[in-house]
Design a protein around this nucleic acid. Structure first.
Lengths: 186, 186
DNA sequence: TCCATCATGTAAACAGTTACATGATTGC
DNA sequence: GCAATCATGTAACTGTTTACATGATGGA
């Protein structure tokens, strides 16, 4: 019988929460598998580098959110990690509700930052910047649409929905960029 | 007469580039003024903490991108920083073109990350998450619209355009969230 | 058997955060 | 003159990156 001591579980970081989610969605897996999920994700925000993931899972294990079990017959000493009940609780807490401001608020956008300083460029450089940004965003958008269509064919509703989120965001940025073009190159 | 030795200027980070932009747009200013710009910005991605800004401007000065001049009659020893010509060149290089993939690509979105794992929640928790997210995003959107309208009144075209970018992004995320709601709560 | 790559880590460097220290300035 | 705040920093900590090391595995 366990005794609740009111030790509130410490909050997890964004990457930690995402890893908990990956383990929860994938089922018991090795750190390498977790890395692959990040590396193969269309988003490149996190590299899924070894130096990030291996220490992170050890951290989560020490905090009782992941449990490691040795794989039999694996010469590399690889371990399978799965969520503990505390881990599942931490995952739910990280996901919300309540949603933190930083979760629902305006995400950072390096393009928006640059537009802030566009008036510092001479008109030619400004036009070159805007043209380059627009064409590259169009490429990105097409890739995302292709990826999204593939997920729909494969029947992966979740990946389809998530990629639709990316597509909508990119479309909004592109529409906005064209508004900037109209405004600044009159 | 300066001799070009082909020392290509090292690339600046996102925060460094933004600081160069702030100095370029504001004119000669102290680190404290730079901090205020970040602290008063609607975006909370960077805190503008002293521990980030003071070492950063020293770094940029040592690299010859900023030049410091002592303020006369200031007991605190505060210095005014301005762009050097190398600094202006580094700013232009940071802004682009060419735009890096990370600049024009899909920005990270903690909400999108969470939707990836929504199927791990039971239906009730899922509904609660989506309802909370939607109402909080609506609040954010209204604040942004108010801010945007204020900038338009004040005649600050740049701040108006940039805030319109935030507004469009938030609207796209909200539309998308409603698509998620339709899909998951049928 | 040998070579590429898989898989598990570690080390050093770095950027940014919170929290703190300290002196200058301003308002009462 | 005193308290609040302005302004300039510094210190310790944290998390992530790149680069490296090392052994296991699998295909030619």
């Amino acid at each position: 019988m366990s005794i609740s001591v009111g030790l509130r579980t410490m909050a997890v970081t964004e990457l930690e929460g995402t890893v908990l989610g990956v383990v929860g969605a994938t089922g018991p897996c090795t750190p390498y598998v977790i890395r692959r999920v990040f590396q193969e994700s269309p988003s490149t925000y996190w590299s899924g580098s070894a130096g990030a993931i291996y220490p992170l899972v050890v951290r989560l294990e020490r905090r009782g959110l992941l449990h490691a079990r040795r794989q039999l017959g694996d010469g590399r000493g690889g371990k399978l990690y799965r969520l503990t009940s505390d881990g599942r609780r931490a995952l739910r807490r990280w996901m919300g509700p309540p949603c933190a401001d930083i979760t629902v608020g305006v995400p950072p956008d390096p393009l928006r930052t640059r537009v802030d300083f566009l008036h510092l460029l001479d008109p030619a450089a400004r036009r070159a910047f805007l043209a380059d940004a627009e064409s590259k965003m169009l490429e990105h958008l097409e890739r995302i649409h292709a990826y999204s269509a593939r997920q729909l064919e494969l029947g992966d509703r979740t990946e389809y929905l998530v990629s639709q989120g990316s597509a909508r965001m990119m479309q909004a940025r592109l529409d906005w960029l064209r508004e900037v073009v109209r405004e600044l190159t009159d």
